[in-house]
Amino acid sequence: MILDLHSHSIKSDDGRAKVPNYCQWIRAREIPIDGFVLTEHRQFDFESDYSALAKEFGLTILKASEVETEYGHVLVFGVTEALTQTFDFTDIHLPLAQVIEAAERHGAVPVPCHPGRKRVGMSAHLEEYGVPQGVRIVEIYNGGSRGDEDAIAQNMAAEQDYLGIGGSDAHIVSQIGKCATRFPEKITSAAELAEALRGGDFEALNFREQI
């Protein structure tokens, strides 16, 4: 199963894509993914229910979050209501250690995203803060990366022995599916996604040249 693990809808301040249009686009353009995860900025979107849409288009649509820490932005998969009570998702100065500790305690999985990017990427902060404890996975393909940002991420992942995922970081419809992650088993829920990430059996994919 192939999921785009990083996307934004109009629920994010800079997102301009409606979720039904993502679905329509994936099917019309035959984007080679089976679903996507909405990782809205600084929030978890409890109110939206995409199950009918997912059924209509035969896609898996899951929800997660993108929060902000001193090491840059971090995707959190497997968010639960209890987890959202442990720290303020809107805070743009969250300590990464707190995010990791809380995520692990609540069965969620933190993944620093676009880590090769200036300021908002983890690699830019290693010299100042050192290598953080508890990171196991980073995003090594990001559809919004410029220049050598993905290469920096991949080098860092190799040096630190991190696993890698891929996500498009789509903010408009036509960006969805540019990068993604392949899992051996079918995933139908956020909890299963977190479990699959913890299991470590997945592969980051880059479709930017194909679609």
Binding site: R146, H171, I172
Partner: peptide
């Protein structure tokens, strides 16, 4: 020219 997005919108 490098394919980097500078502006996007709808």
């Amino acid at each position: 020219d490098a394919g980097e997005t500078r502006v996007f919108g709808t």
